[in-house]
Design a protein around this nucleic acid. Structure first.
Lengths: 238, 238
DNA sequence: AACTGTTTGTTCGATTATAGAACACAATTG
DNA sequence: CAATTGTGTTCTATAATCGAACAAACAGTT
């Protein structure tokens, strides 16, 4: 009987893996869960879940409402603060500028295996359009302009070697010599996106992107603004 | 030799606690760390740190740069997405409105033991003033307008019973019947803040606040805008 | 109302799997 | 070459697990 037989991840330390799994389940569930529900979702005994939860609670990674139900805690926000902190601080003013001049939601997404994760978002001042991207939201790397832009930072050869599982989208090659990626109706119906690659030394490949319903500007102009902003961000990060 | 003798937290599951501790250290360190540095900071053997880090890496809670140094990973952003998600989504448009009409940075902070943690922030469009609050930043509950506002949601008696360790600030009583809290030079020299309490059903007590260098408006007017916004947020969350 | 059955939160102790330390070797970097 | 780091061993003490048991809240029934 190998260790970690039942768990999805075959990580060396089971308890840590389970604790993280609990947080993932909680983040995914849009509502507070009882301990029994969470133990069930984790596939462990209630007592096991209970002990894990208490540890997480000690670190404020998890809080409990009046009914005893558990939900993600403020400690997670503190930990997330450190994620690409340099990139976040450098990108924020540029995102604000982009959002307001283009009247589009602007955001930075970073590459994470077969997904890309939205890090920071800024909505335009006159937010007639609803927010479509939230920090922490994920999309497949193969769907949407940000993912294509990230792919386009690599030649096809290198990409294939780097991540064998994920095909290199043909649009990436196109985006590579054009300098930006565009998508329509891919992630969210009716929503389009334009993105440019963003490379920071020592950090994951990322993308600078905007989303919009109907473009008031020429895509090339938008892309030019994005490229300019990306250049400034990269320059600031040395 | 009792278990968990050396660790700060006496949590039931040591490994999970250490894994979280590693993330906390990484979030606090403003730069990537080598495994040896991190193991040293954790006070454990390198091999121990190594196994923990590999587990964290499996979940994208931690990534490694080219030199093998570790830093917080995108998975944390995903987990943090779930923290008071309802509050975040409900507050965001109101924060944008406040930031732009008052030309101040607006944010929501939630109570976490002896601290309050900034959740969402929105900077004004013309961000002449630098960002002073970032999501995930923490301050003592006893310092600054947000903390006082959170205290002011409770009568002094109840507060003392709730958190024996932390004194009830006299300003909280004042803020309680005035409806808002104000602070100057407390957290950051030269920066002032105005905050109102924010209560959401099933969630932690929180505060809606703005920070500014020099106020162009009357504090009472600012507070009125905050109160209005808080009322709308609370109404939306039912 | 009292009684009973059910569900949930919590605790406890014995068993066993698991983490931890030390060692060794490869791969790097200066 | 030396020093640091990545990676894998092995073995034993320890910490996590499991299951059961206790406590408390709640619903239904007589």
């Amino acid at each position: 009987m190998t260790p970690n037989a039942g768990t999805a991840q075959a990580s060396p330390s089971q308890t840590l893996s389970r604790g993280i799994r609990a947080l993932e389940i909680l983040a995914e569930a849009q509502q507070p869960l009882t301990i029994a529900e969470l133990a069930d979702a984790m596939g462990v005994h209630r007592s096991v879940a209970y002990r894990i939860l208490r540890t997480l609670e000690d670190h404020s990674l998890l809080v409990r409402d009046d009914g005893g139900r558990v939900q993600p805690g403020p400690g997670l926000a503190v930990l997330a603060r450190g994620v690409s902190r340099n990139l976040q601080t450098a990108a924020l003013p540029e995102l604000t500028l982009l959002a307001n001049t283009l009247t589009m939601s602007a955001f930075v997404a970073v590459w994470d295996r077969e997904e890309c994760v939205t890090l920071v978002t800024v909505d335009p001042r006159h937010s007639g359009a609803a927010v479509v991207q939230h920090p922490g939201s994920r999309h497949p790397i193969s769907a949407g302009a940000p993912g294509i832009a990230i792919q386009s930072a690599f030649p096809e050869q290198e990409w294939r070697a780097l991540v064998p599982g994920i095909p290199y989208r043909s649009e990436a090659a196109e985006a590579r010599h054009r300098g930006y990626a565009a998508s329509h109706d891919e992630v969210i119906p009716g929503v389009s996106s334009i993105a440019v690659p963003l490379r920071v030394p020592g950090g994951r490949p990322a993308a600078l992107a905007v989303v919009y319903i109907r473009a008031a500007q020429d895509p090339d102009e938008v892309a030019a603004a994005l490229t300019e902003a990306a250049r400034r961000i990269e320059a600031q990060l040395g």
